[in-house]
């Protein structure tokens, strides 16, 4: 467990690496607001190309950005179908009668089994999921045989298609923006940026320094504690525990037998760490200097101006449109 990577950060050089994390965080938030202000597909497409150009200028590996979207594919599909099914405005494009019959239900059960078997191979999961959904439509539409339980109408309207594309482009832009942030900013810099931005919260009694210290210590101890977990698992496995198999009930038991020692060790560690920090003169709430000082540079001014201009433009478009 020597090379565990926390966060998505990849070391590199380029425009976004030179920026102060604070500018990056604020810019991403501002640009997200701007994206939400845009009201039509053409506008979003322009925004999308601007983002693409930005990534190209900043030398961001597109593959990684796309990979960052993978976990959100379910969300994307959900919004897509939600819009298609429930938006009933505009021209009617498609109107089909779907049959829920003995044959079509059996067909779907069979289709589901095939889908699960294919999914087990592990590749093209998204394509398979899409094919599965399409298949269900086909089965409902073209198998009106046997005893019919019920029928329902499946209709697609123009506005539904439009909105689903609109929402998806918007989500894609927003995800790529945040991916650019996490790809080019170390978790520690991100925390420090957030800390610095949250400093005004002191008025309501929230100390952002404590928050940042907690995050950075957690980041530092994740590999250590993971290592610990593997050691305990190995120790338990050597005495006959089987983590891979067994019923759910057994697995839960095993997780508990792992968690209990982990917690005890973690408490011991935190006690030691508190001693070490105190002996090195750490006093909670006392001002400290920083080894990493955040500094704004020319890049920050440039990107800041660009971001504000983009926001201003979208506001103007919103008012005119």
């Amino acid at each position: 467990m020597k090379n565990i990577v926390i966060g998505q950060y990849i070391p590199g050089k380029g425009l976004f690496y030179r920026m102060d994390p604070r500018t990056k965080i604020i810019s991403v938030i501002t640009l997200m607001i701007a994206i939400f202000l845009l009201g039509s597909i053409p506008q979003l497409l322009v925004a999308f190309s601007v983002c693409a150009v930005m990534m190209w200028v900043g030398n961001i590996p597109v593959k990684r950005v796309i990979r960052g979207m993978k976990p959100l594919i379910i969300l994307l599909l959900f919004t897509f179908f939600f819009q298609i099914f429930f938006n009933k405005e505009g021209k009617l494009l498609l109107d089909e009668v779907m049959h829920v019959t003995v044959v079509s239900v059996l067909g779907i059960v069979l289709w589901t089994i095939i889908w699960r078997l294919l999914a087990r191979i592990g590749k093209f999961k998204t394509v398979l999921l899409l094919a599965y959904i399409m298949g269900i439509f086909v089965l409902f539409r073209f198998l009106p045989f046997g005893y019919s339980f019920t029928t329902f109408r499946f209709a697609i309207y123009e506005k539904g298609i439009e909105m689903s594309i609109f929402v998806i482009i918007r989500l894609v832009i927003i995800i790529s923006l945040s991916t650019v942030l996490t790809l080019t900013t170390k978790p520690t810099d991100l925390t420090q940026g957030l800390e610095s931005l949250m400093r005004p919260l002191k008025i309501i009694g929230i100390r952002s320094e404590d928050f940042a210290l907690i995050i950075s210590i957690s980041l530092r101890y994740i590999p250590t504690i993971l290592d610990e977990a593997f050691k305990i698992m190995a120790a338990q496995a050597s005495r006959g525990a089987d983590f891979a198999e067994g019923k759910l009930k057994d697995k839960v038991k095993q997780v508990i037998s792992l968690l209990v020692p982990m917690f005890i060790i973690a408490f011991k560690r935190s006690e030691d760490l508190a001693d070490a920090m105190e002996s090195r003169n750490f006093v909670p709430g006392k001002p400290r200097t920083r080894i990493h000082e955040l500094r704004f540079g020319w890049t920050d001014i440039g990107v800041g101006v660009f971001t504000l201009a983009a926001l201003a433009l979208t506001i103007v478009l919103k008012v005119i449109g």
Binding site: R220, R269, R280, P287, T289, I291
Partner: peptide, 27 residues
């Protein structure tokens, strides 16, 4: 005693700096 439980910083540099940061030494 435990080398791991007294390492505060995310990197070696950060850890050496920790005590000095507490003493308000300029960067």
């Amino acid at each position: 005693q435990n080398p791991d439980n007294q390492f505060v910083g995310v990197t070696v540099r950060d850890d050496i700096a920790f005590g000095m940061e507490n003493l308000m030494v300029p960067q």
